[in-house]
Simulated assay, not measured.
Amino acid sequence: MKTLIFIVIPLILYSGETLHALQITPSDTLVVEVTGTGTDAKFVPALIQVNAGDVIRFEVLEGMHTVTAYHPDNRRPLRIPDAASSFDSGMLNKGDVWLLKIDEKGVYDYFCMPHERLGHVGRILVGTKEASAEYDNSLIPKEAARIFSMYWKKKQQKK
Rank of each mutant, 00 (worst) to 15 (best):
S132I: 05
R79N: 13
E134H: 10
L125Q: 04
R123C: 05
N93L: 12
H120I: 00
H71L: 06
G95C: 06
M113D: 14
P72C: 13
E134K: 14
H115D: 10
G90L: 14
V107M: 02
K142L: 04
D73K: 15
D103C: 07
Y110Q: 07
A84V: 06
I140H: 00
L139D: 03
A133T: 05
L99N: 12
D73G: 10
A131M: 03
P81V: 00
D103H: 05
P81F: 01
V107A: 07
L100M: 10
S89T: 13
Y151R: 02
S138I: 07
L99G: 06
W98F: 15
I80T: 03
E130W: 01
E143A: 11
A133R: 02
N93D: 13
Y151I: 02
V126H: 06
K101E: 14
D103Q: 12
D96M: 07
A131N: 01
R76Y: 11
K105R: 11
K129F: 10
S149A: 15
R75N: 15
G90Y: 08
M91T: 12
R79T: 01
R75H: 14
Y135W: 10
K94I: 02
M150D: 13
D82N: 11
F148S: 02
I124Y: 03
V121H: 00
R123K: 11
S86H: 13
Y70T: 03
E143C: 06
L100N: 07
D88H: 15
K142D: 08
H120A: 14
D103Y: 05
N93H: 13
D82M: 11
V121I: 11
P81Q: 03
R75C: 13
H71S: 12
E134Q: 11
G90T: 08
N137C: 06
S132L: 03
F111E: 04
E143H: 08
L78H: 07
